[in-house]
Design a protein around this nucleic acid. Structure first.
Length: 469
RNA sequence: CGGGAAGUAGCGCAGCUUGGUUAGCGCGCCUGGUUUGGGACCAGGAGGCCGCGGGUUCGAAUCCCGCCUUCCCGACCA
């Protein structure tokens, strides 16, 4: 039976749909101060899954976690000219503390290149100390003029990796490794959100970087979202903070540093990559709840069967919860659809009489019946099927919403629907300004074969342009 | 930060133009009952500094000023 829709549909009003999902899936609320965000338990559970997956990959890449302070002396920011110029407009600065005006104002970190640079300089003495591979999970503050939950909040959570290397080549290779083995691997294999990887044009580079790499995803409203980013900082920060080492030959040499991050914005990317008119849709490998077992009637034998189903799935390594005795069946079904739980197992008297349960896929709505005994074997397989189907669907979406064009005007037009791809030579300079006037920007540069260039100086590059978040 | 819209119960809204008894409605919430295979129904009930501060007035949700917050469109960004 069709019911009145719970959410604004994507086609009716996409921004409204996004807010409805955030609210009704109980992901987050606005905080009392403009731009701040309260992440609710279900939203945080998703973030914890993201954290866990990324953290494992970071450690596999050899970086170690540490923690640096929230407060940074204002003077640190000023040490790198481009860095301070880039971040000044969005800094939160503490001028008073302990009831008195501070001698030197303290900034709330917008990112930690500066403090970490200061300590890298202290810790690195010899080439034997390199590479130094650090990561921290932290909150950062960038005063946003136009906040949006998860996508752009004044305070957000992220991981920021910071590394120091003896050579430019080593720094570059490590940055590429992070980009591929941490970010791209997570995005493709866990989030099921394929992206275009490329380098940023000079205009879009991180403040203080010599090269920025990005993973650019396509949301279901045709706008691009930067899902993760990696920067080669060259020797800019090494110079500013005197990060040097003694080489094998006994010479003092400056280090090359990198930094890289992924944030709670990924939750926004998740919502807009997979979500549909029924709500959120979380890929199984990411989902904090992979299977929800719903009782159709709250009768003792049904409840007992539901608990047994949950136990057998739990034993099979499935993240499962049971929902029973809370409102009507239809209500509970809708609630879990909004939350995007990938599989629902319905346990009711009619099925039980035949020794089966009904399994429903959140992505397709397809129902199937499974014998009680074979559930623990079948569900993990089905979860993997859903995972692969979501990736395939997102992949097609990305391809279908990428249009090859041959002019700036054509690109601006194509950007109404997604990415436009065209020769970078046609765009660089005046073309980029023309696009920016239409709220279209260059998201990344690639080689013609789709691989990542080492620099924007490389000839014969293409650019992917789009409207973006 | 510029342009636009809006803040009244948890959510969505009416009331404001033309100031005047006790501020309404739908959903949700609580209690009891009937229900339950796709957002149930009946009955009873709780819940409001009408965003905050100031002003005008005998009297302000309503008129005036300031601020805060949210949403949309731009410029800036993970």
């Amino acid at each position: 039976m069709a019911s009145k829709s719970v959410l604004t549909s994507q086609s009716e009003d996409f921004p409204r749909w996004y807010q409805d999902v955030v609210a009704k899936a109980e992901l987050a609320d606005n905080g009392p101060v403009r731009g701040t965000m309260v992440i609710r338990p279900y939203g945080y559970a998703i973030w914890e899954r993201i954290q866990g997956e990324i953290d494992t990959r970071i450690k596999a890449a050899g970086a170690k976690n540490a923690y640096f302070p929230l407060f940074i002396p204002e003077s640190y920011l000023s040490k790198e000219a481009e860095h301070v110029a880039g971040f000044s407009p969005e800094l939160a600065v503490v001028t008073h503390a302990g009831g008195e005006k501070l001698a030197e104002p303290v900034v709330v970190r917008p990112t930690s290149e500066t403090v970490i640079g200061e300590f890298m300089a202290k810790w690195i003495q010899s080439y034997r100390d390199l590479p130094l591979l650090l990561n921290q999970w932290a909150n950062v503050v960038r005063w946003e003029l136009r906040p949006r939950l998860f996508l752009r909040s004044s305070e957000f959570l992220w991981q920021e990796g910071h590394t120091a290397h003896a050579t430019s080549d080593d720094a570059s290779a490590y940055a590429i490794r992070i980009q591929n083995d941490v970010y791209n691997d997570f995005l493709v294999n866990v989030l099921a959100a394929p992206t275009y990887q490329g380098i940023k044009p000079p205009s879009e580079r991180f403040a203080g970087a010599i090269n920025s790499m990005t993973c650019e995803g396509m949301m279901r409203d045709g706008k691009a979202l930067q899902m993760a980013t990696t920067h080669e900082l060259g020797q800019n920060f090494a110079k500013a903070f005197d990060i040097h080492y003694q080489s094998e030959a006994g010479q003092a040499e400056l280090c090359y540093t990198t930094s890289w991050g992924a944030s709670t914005r990924l939750v926004g990317g998740l919502i807009m990559t997979h979500g549909d008119d029924a709500g959120l849709l979380v890929p199984p490998r990411l989902a904090p709840v992979q299977v929800i077992v719903v009782t159709v009637r709250d009768e003792p034998d049904v409840i007992e069967a539901a608990d047994q189903v949950a136990k057998s799935l739990l034993d099979a390594g499935v993240r499962v919860e049971v929902d029973r005795g809370r409102g009507t069946f239809g209500r509970r079904v809708t609630d879990w659809e909004i939350k995007g739980v990938p599989l629902r197992v319905e346990v009711g008297p009619r099925d039980l009489a035949q020794g089966v349960v009904t399994v429903v896929r959140r992505d397709t709505g397809a129902k199937s019946t499974h014998g009680l005994g074979e559930l623990a074997g079948g569900v993990p397989t089905l979860l993997e099927t859903v995972q692969h189907d979501l990736l395939a669907r997102a992949q097609s979406y990305l391809v279908e919403h990428t249009h090859d064009v041959t002019s700036v005007a054509g690109a601006i037009d194509a950007a109404k629907d997604g990415f436009a791809r065209l020769a970078w030579d046609l765009v660089a300079g005046e073309g980029e300004r023309e696009m920016n006037d239409q709220a279209v920007s260059v998201r990344c540069l690639q080689r013609r074969d789709g691989s990542m260039p080492t620099s924007d100086e490389e000839g014969d590059l293409v650019c992917l342009v789009a409207k973006s978040y």
